[in-house]
Design a protein around this nucleic acid. Structure first.
Length: 212
DNA sequence: CACCAGGCAAGTA
DNA sequence: TACTTGCATGGT
């Protein structure tokens, strides 16, 4: 396992340019998007968030007071809408009970404390928690997704059989703990993944990291 | 028609 | 502990 993580970032940035993530105007919108995008493409999430905006429901209090069944109806285009409505309500209730309904108070804590609070919510796993920490709170924690595992294991930069935090540890060890770097890096991996061949072929020309 | 998309939790053995 | 399955819409 070589330490090419910075070089890979540079190569991806040179090829794809700045990605301007996260597409959300407020920390609350980022948090909602982070739950809605679980195993779902972003286009569908945009439809769901647009529904909430048009209904005037994209505020903490409105979402908290909205019955779960109605929330589910609003976010229907994002798929898994019953599950996600429950998960969002779990999150909102935790923030209401422990942080006076202020997401910013949660995010103002240390990365470790904020992460623990997010992970205590049923429906918030490591990727969703890190997405909220990084993209809503500016915390320097790397967001690992299935693309990260697929691409980096294909190039033998992480083990093929590994877990979320082992991969995350590699990024945290190999790179400066810089939220702007982690922000762009994760987004670049998503951009790169879309151009990769589906069949493993490290030598193809158009796959972004061939030759690494 | 099949397959995938910016996961997670619960059930089974 | 290590798999497997349910959740669900919309685009290709």
């Amino acid at each position: 396992m070589s330490d090419h993580f910075q070089e890979i970032y540079d190569r991806l940035f040179a090829r794809f340019g700045p990605q301007q993530w996260w597409p959300g105007e407020t920390p609350l919108e980022v948090m909602v998007g982070a739950v809605l995008t679980q195993n779902t493409n972003w286009q569908n999430v945009e439809k769901a968030i647009e529904n909430l905006k048009e209904a005037g429901l994209l505020s903490f209090q409105a979402l908290l007071e909205l019955p779960t069944a109605e929330l589910a109806w609003q976010i229907k285009p994002s798929g898994y809408y019953n599950i996600k409505a429950g998960r969002l309500h779990n999150l909102l209730q935790m923030i209401a009970e422990r942080y006076e309904g202020e997401l910013d108070l949660l995010l103002a804590q240390s990365t470790a404390d904020a992460r623990q609070a997010l992970l205590s919510v049923k429906g918030v796993g490591p990727e969703t928690a890190d997405s909220i920490l990084l993209y809503a709170g500016g915390h320097p924690t790397f967001v690992v997704d299935s693309y990260t595992h697929r691409i980096f294991s294909r190039h033998q930069l992480v083990d093929e059989v590994t877990d979320y935090h082992s991969i995350q540890d590699r990024f945290h060890d190999q790179l400066p703990l810089d939220s702007r770097l982690f922000n762009e890096y994760h987004a670049l991996i998503v951009a790169a993944a879309k151009t990769y061949c589906k069949k493993k072929n490290p030598d193809c020309d158009h796959c972004p990291l061939n030759g690494i």
